[in-house]
Amino acid sequence: MPEQPPAAAVPHLRSEVQRLRVFDLEQVRHQQHGQEWVPHWHGEWSFGAIVRGECRCSVAGRPFVARTGDVVAIAPGVVHTGALSAPQYRGSVLVTMLYVPTAWLLHEGLQAPAHSGVVHMPRLAERARSLAGTAEVQAWLRRVVPALRRSLRAGSSAIEPPLPSAAVRALIERVQVAVAGGETSVAGLAGHCGVSRERVHRVLTQWVGMAPGDYLRAVRLHRARQMLLAGEPAASVAVACGFADQAHFTRWFRRSFGYTPGDLLQAAVRG
């Protein structure tokens, strides 16, 4: 039997980020098989189309697989993770994500979906393959947001996290106040909130979906992203946000957002 040639290596394809100068809309194209994200959240609505391949997701603690033709909606502040794969496409994957501020939805007179969720919309997903420029992105959103709102009512495709008790909500609010005030350690969070470290760990893990250390790092990364968009150089941002060095900062930034600080700075300049 003749020897088979070795399989071709799958090239490393960087995620492509584009900032649109309309209410700070952001478009990101993810193309790398095997790319993974650590638990994180966004301050905007996230709308994503699985154009090719699949994404193994966990949103608000609920795991699911979004496949080719699916459109995903993730509400602001909802913790999620993901991992891209393309078992039927020889390593080729394409997921288009749009990050949409509430201000844009209000300007357009659009109501967001009631919940996060995933809906099979093959035609709309395919149209996200080659969105180019502000006009096409906004036209796609004007179609997909109402369609998601109609589909993501209370039902099997909606991801509705359970509601915490009043005491748990109050503790989470105290944690957020402490973090906003500059607290950077789990012990400091516990002291500020007047509870044990174990209580902070239990509440954040169960109701936020992240261990306290991961939550604090995510807050630092969100602060870093805002500093980058304000024009701060990456090296200065890394130091200001408590990362050991720029390489360490870049690694965690990419694992959270899918692209590097340098990619974001270039997108901000191009936008």
Rank of each mutant, 00 (worst) to 15 (best):
P87I: 06
A75M: 03
S58Q: 10
R153W: 01
V51E: 05
I172P: 04
G191Q: 14
A132Q: 14
A244I: 08
L228Y: 09
V208W: 03
P101T: 13
C57L: 15
P6V: 12
H30G: 02
G48R: 15
E54R: 14
A158N: 05
I74N: 08
I74Y: 06
G194N: 13
A170W: 03
S165E: 13
L98A: 09
S85D: 14
G61L: 10
R225M: 15
H30V: 02
F249I: 13
Q206S: 15
A147I: 02
G231V: 11
R153G: 06
W140A: 03
T81H: 02
L25A: 12
G91C: 12
A178R: 04
A218Q: 15
Q27E: 02
E44M: 09
P122Y: 04
R225I: 06
S15Y: 05
G181P: 00
Q226E: 15
Y89Q: 13
E26K: 11
L148D: 05
T134G: 04
R149E: 05
V186P: 08
P212D: 07
Q206G: 01
L84F: 11
Q246E: 15
P5L: 04
R217G: 02
S256P: 01
V200C: 11
V186F: 00
P233V: 02
L228T: 09
L106G: 00
G271H: 09
A167Y: 04
V168N: 06
V28N: 11
A60E: 07
P63F: 11
C193F: 07
L265K: 14
F253G: 08
H248S: 09
P164C: 10
G34T: 08
T260G: 11
S196F: 12
A238P: 12
W37I: 03
L264Y: 07
L25P: 03
Y99D: 02
Q246P: 07
I172A: 12
L25S: 11
W45Q: 09
R153F: 00
Y99P: 00
R169S: 14
H42P: 07
V137N: 02
P113I: 01
A170R: 14
W252M: 03
F64C: 04
R149H: 11
R174C: 09
A170E: 11
V208I: 14
T134E: 15
A167G: 12
Q266R: 15
S85M: 02
G209A: 04
Q266A: 14
I159Q: 01
A224W: 13
G53W: 03
V179H: 00
Q138E: 15
V219P: 00
R174W: 00
L152H: 01
A218L: 10
A8T: 12
S130K: 10
R270Y: 05
V119E: 10
A244P: 00
P5K: 04
P5A: 06
R199E: 13
Q35W: 13
G133A: 07
S165W: 05
P2Y: 07
V79E: 01
V10I: 15
A49N: 09
A244E: 11
R153C: 00
R142D: 03
V137G: 04
E136T: 01
D70S: 08
A125V: 04
A268L: 08
E16N: 05
V195T: 07
V93N: 07
G155E: 06
A49T: 06
S151L: 01
R217C: 11
P11H: 06
G258V: 13
R223S: 08
T250D: 14
A224F: 12
H33P: 04
Q88Y: 06
H33L: 09
E54H: 10
